[in-house]
Amino acid sequence: MEHYTMNLTLKVWRQKNKNDRGGFITYKVKDISSEMSFLEMFDVLNERLIEESEEPIAFDHDCREGICGMCSMYINGRPHGPWEGTTTCQLHMRAFKDGDTIVVEPWRANSFPVIKDLIVDRTSFDRIIQAGGFISVNTGNAVDGNSIPIEKAKADDSFAAAACIGCGACVAACKNSSAMLFVSAKVSHLALLPQGEPEKKTRVLNMIAQMDKEGFGGCTNTGACEAVCPKEISLDNIARLNQEFIGASVKTGK
């Protein structure tokens, strides 16, 4: 792999706090190596801002290996930037070339209010999980792990849904700011397993009710969420969610 360096123009959303109006500020960055990660490029810029006695750009990040779900930048009109199936922290600078202009914004959704600069509040996702995204089993109640065999295909599908990292890219990409992909991933993860069966109906109804309460929009099946999901969570999960939801509504009359 050939490495190269580049000079770039960044237009970054700066917003002092949730009440501030905010706006784009332009920064020039020089000698960026193609081997850097996108966030390392931000580190370089922030170090320079500190040196110049300016406030560095606030952004969420933690594991920097694509699994914690904390990083959340809207890069050139796409959550997590141009690479498919990739979080912002795993995006590397060889995705760009010398002279490029890169626009960076926070997730935009009413249910994810901006806290500062590129940091948003995603606690609404935690509240949706609280509404039903679990199996009610207290510690110490379990039977032997092999006492209930699970069809491999189902276990694999459940795992694929459970791979969601809760980053919120699906919401940010959706024109309706819908959280359906996130909710459907959790509903699918648990509904596909025999252990999730007893609470299947209440789970889906309660999670959807909480999702609506948080102000997330409805799903119109455009598939933007699936296209940007860094873990490539499938739209099939939304179909499954709808099925579960209708089934549960009919059976419980809710």
């Binding site: 110490g140 379990a142 792990g145 276990a155 459970a162």
Partner: peptide, 22 residues
């Protein structure tokens, strides 16, 4: 051993063999 049992009960989708076992 109890940890595995507990996690399976919580819905942790561990890798499985074709026979459905862990």
């Amino acid at each position: 051993a109890s940890i595995i049992d507990q996690c399976v009960a919580q819905g942790v989708p561990f890798a499985r063999e074709y026979g459905g076992l862990l």
